[in-house]
Structure formats: structure tokens, C-alpha cells
């Protein structure tokens, strides 16, 4: 589904992505972990096209998308949720998702018909809200939602673009335990329905959800394997897990 091929990106001499190569199979939930500054968000942004890699290629669904602009990658079937909540704060929750549906319902050069009465946009939008459990807040202004609900909305919007693959950039960041649990359930529900690339700090979540894990340290992929194998991998333990544990202790 997704192949990252010898990807390199540096910012003023610092290698944020250092000759990175890995592969995500269709239907897989693939997690990327790594300590702060390992280059996780830089990687996501290269996949979505917001940052251009220095060299290497990104093959998605058989197409080389390395040079494709952001809005067209969405048409290829890539969707992203943001690490920082990134929604239309002054619109209602329903409008937010309807707008994402609209983005993939042909062009938007319709100047006359009232979009908020178009069932062809509203109904699918409501279904995506149900999928993430936000249907009760459909008519609230998005800015008034809680942090956890913002993340749910992020995912509903990503789903509304009917992606083949979902890129989730720390969906649990800043969440309380209750909210995280709800989010894990949503992700469980999405698993196998589409390919997911998950960047996440919370180790419990990653090891309980992921089929495959890639460990990133200073931009380098030091291992890609199943959760069990990653747990046993001595290199990972010293480079990452060990360090994490002492921090938590």
C-alpha cells in the first residue's frame, strides 16, 4: 500500500529523515514510534506532501506521489489527522464533516443551492460522525468541543474523504485516560477496514493495536517488525524503550 524508499530530509544540516525505508501492507495497522525529535511528524508531512523530501521516493498504491501536491494526494486516497487539532473552529461539527464530504463530491463551483440542505453531503457526514461517536454533538460549534472530541472530529473528517489509507499523527496526544480509551475503541473499529499509519507516543496503545511497528531514532528506521519482536529487539530497548522507561519511572 505504502512504500517509503530511501527517504532523506534535512533541516539546516540536521537529518530529520535519514535514508528511511519501510513498507506498509494493505489493511495493516502500522505504527511509527520514536522519542521526541525522532522525525515522526516530519515523516508524516512528507507523506502528505506538506514537506518535500530531499531525495528518495514515496510510493502509494502503486503511484509515485513524491511530487504530487497536497490536495491531489487526498484524491489518491490518503487522509491525515493532525497532531495539533486542525479543524474549522467556527463551523458546526456537522458542517466540518460535510465540507470534507464535499471535497470528494465533484467540483465545488456550485454557487446557488444551499449546501447545508444537500442531503447528498449531510447524510454521509452524519454517518461518519456516528462512526466516531460524535453524532450527539453534530449541531454544536466545533470550537466548543472538548479536546478528545476534537480528535474524534479530526478522524471523522479524515474518513469523510473516503481514504484508502489513514495517517494518524498522535491521535491520543493530550488526552485523559477516558478519552484515550474511547479513541482506542474507534481505532479498533477502523482496523482492517482501511490501512492505517499511526504515529503515537502511548506505548500501551501502540503495542495493543499495531500489526507492525517501525522504530525511528534520529530519523533512522532502526527496526520494522511485529510488536513482540520489537519488544525483544535489544537495539530498540537501548535506543528507545529503555530510555522511555527511565523517564516514566
Amino acid at each position: 500500500m505504502l512504500r517509503i524508499n530511501k527517504l532523506v530530509k534535512s533541516f539546516g544540516g540536521i537529518l530529520a529523515t535519514d535514508n528511511l525505508t519501510f513498507k506498509v501492507e494493505p489493511g495493516e495497522l502500522h505504527a511509527v514510534i520514536g522519542p521526541n525529535g525522532a522525525g515522526k511528524t516530519t515523516l508524516i508531512e512528507q507523506i502528505t506532501g506538506e514537506i518535500e523530501p530531499d531525495s528518495g521516493s514515496i510510493i502509494f498504491d502503486g503511484n509515485d506521489i513524491s511530487e504530487v501536491p497536497v490536495h491531489l494526494r487526498s484524491a489518491y486516497g490518503l487522509a491525515r489527522s493532525f497532531q495539533i487539532t486542525n479543524i474549522f473552529m467556527d463551523m458546526t461539527v456537522w458542517d466540518n464533516v460535510a465540507l470534507a464530504v464535499q471535497a470528494h463530491a465533484g467540483h465545488s463551483f456550485h454557487f446557488w443551492k444551499n449546501a447545508s440542505k444537500e442531503q447528498i453531503l449531510r447524510e454521509p457526514a452524519f454517518e461518519y460522525l456516528q462512526q466516531v461517536g460524535l453524532e450527539k454533538r453534530a449541531d454544536d460549534v466545533a470550537g466548543n468541543l472538548s479536546h478528545g472530541e476534537h480528535r474524534q472530529l479530526e478522524i471523522a473528517m479524515a474518513l469523510a474523504t473516503r481514504p484508502k489509507m489513514l495517517l494518524l499523527d498522535e491521535p491520543m496526544a493530550g488526552m485523559g485516560p477516558e478519552e484515550s480509551k474511547a479513541m482506542v475503541e474507534i481505532l479498533q473499529g477502523l482496523k482492517r477496514k482501511l490501512t492505517i499509519l499511526l504515529v503515537e507516543h502511548d506505548m500501551d496503545v501502540v503495542f495493543s493495536l499495531a500489526d507492525k511497528i517501525t522504530v525511528l531514532v534520529y530519523g533512522q528506521g532502526i527496526a520494522t517488525d511485529t510488536p513482540e519482536a520489537i519488544r525483544q529487539n535489544p537495539e530498540v530497548r537501548t535506543a528507545y524503550l529503555g530510555e522511555e522507561e527511565t523517564v516514566h519511572a
Partner: peptide, 18 residues
């Protein structure tokens, strides 16, 4: 809706495919 969305959050508009 598209124009207002782009005012509210241009980055997101691009990422959902506009």
C-alpha cells in the same frame, strides 16, 4: 462553504482535497 472553510483553515482545506 469552500471559501469560508479556506478562511477558517487553509491547511486543512488542502489536506481534505480542495
Amino acid at each position: 462553504m469552500m471559501i469560508r472553510g479556506a478562511k477558517s483553515n487553509e491547511q486543512r482545506m488542502a489536506s481534505i482535497g480542495f
